[in-house]
Design a protein around this nucleic acid. Structure first.
Length: 270
DNA sequence: ATTAATGTTCAGAA
DNA sequence: TTTCTGAACATTAA
């Protein structure tokens, strides 16, 4: 998302910010929306970055818009999948060369959130609650973090206070590549297994980002131009129950852990 | 036609 | 203290 919108959004000046008709019930913007529109008007977006699973737009006076897409939220420059479910619009001042007058947050299920934080508030209120970013981890950090809990390693990977940035789909893919059974207690992994896990996290997430994410059967996820991702073509186990394991031909299994689906190969993952 | 499932997070209970 | 449960929501597949 960040890579898709950054080239078209950094340096643009905001004209207005508004919730659309089907606006977010969960949107929780401080200060009040009316005052907010006045505050942000005329400010330039100085950076667009990712923080764990959030998209952060930083304004010239230091405030941040923080978008948390959750299950079905999209950041779009054009062509939403439907005109329904458009939740928030950032409208830019006229720009000679840009084809995109607005940035949209579209969210079919409506679980996503958009917050505005004054200077420093995001770091203080949100960043401090989350674990280190998944892509900033190393074997030593993994060892320390996983030692904290006896929960199944799959459940631990989804705990954003333990490590931030891994979602359900990628947790299954990571454990498959690590050859670790998802039900293993997190604090019982060997040195060697942790080393494999650390490498698999980098490989899976880097590759998924490179392929612009996974557009699943429901077709929800799209990039900033509403195009499908391509990482679903590289899924090894996710949503492949009963299909052959790519490396041993055993059938992929599905179990439920912490009310979320987990997919794995019972032969390759121990 | 129901029901279960869903790239998630959080409060509140066990 | 740690872990579990259900709710928020809309749509699709079974």
């Amino acid at each position: 998302m960040v890579r898709g919108i950054r080239p078209h959004v950094v340096g643009r000046t905001l004209a207005s910010f508004r919730r659309s008709k089907c606006g977010l019930k969960v949107i929780d913007v401080s200060p009040e929306p009316k005052r907010l529109a006045r505050i942000i008007r005329g400010q330039t977006i100085t950076s667009v970055r990712r923080f764990a699973k959030r998209v952060v737009l930083t304004l010239s006076e230091g405030g941040d818009f923080v978008i948390e897409p959750r299950m079905t939220g999209l950041m779009l420059l054009s062509d939403p999948p439907t005109t329904a479910h458009l939740r928030v619009e950032w409208r830019f001042m006229k720009h000679a060369t840009s084809a995109y007058p607005s940035l949209w947050f579209w969210d079919r299920r409506g679980l996503g959130t958009v917050h505005y934080y004054g200077p420093g508030q995001f770091e203080e209120l949100v960043c401090t609650r989350l674990g280190p970013d998944a892509l900033a981890m190393n074997a030593e950090l993994w060892t320390e973090r996983l030692a904290r809990t006896a929960r199944p390693v799959k459940v631990a990977l989804l705990d954003q206070t333990l490590v931030a940035g891994i979602g359900n789909l990628y947790a299954s893919e990571i454990l498959y590549l690590s050859r670790i059974h998802p039900a293993r207690p997190a604090n019982a992994l060997s040195r060697r297994e942790i080393a494999r896990l650390a490498a698999a996290v980098q490989e899976v997430l880097d590759d998924a980002i490179l392929h612009e994410g996974s557009t699943l059967a429901d077709g929800t996820y799209r990039n900033a131009l509403a195009q499908n991702g391509r990482y679903q073509n590289s899924h090894r186990v996710y949503a492949r129950t009963g299909m052959k394991c790519p490396s041993c031909d055993a059938a992929i299994e599905r179990i439920v852990q912490a009310q979320r689906s987990t997919f794995f190969c019972g032969r390759c993952q121990r």
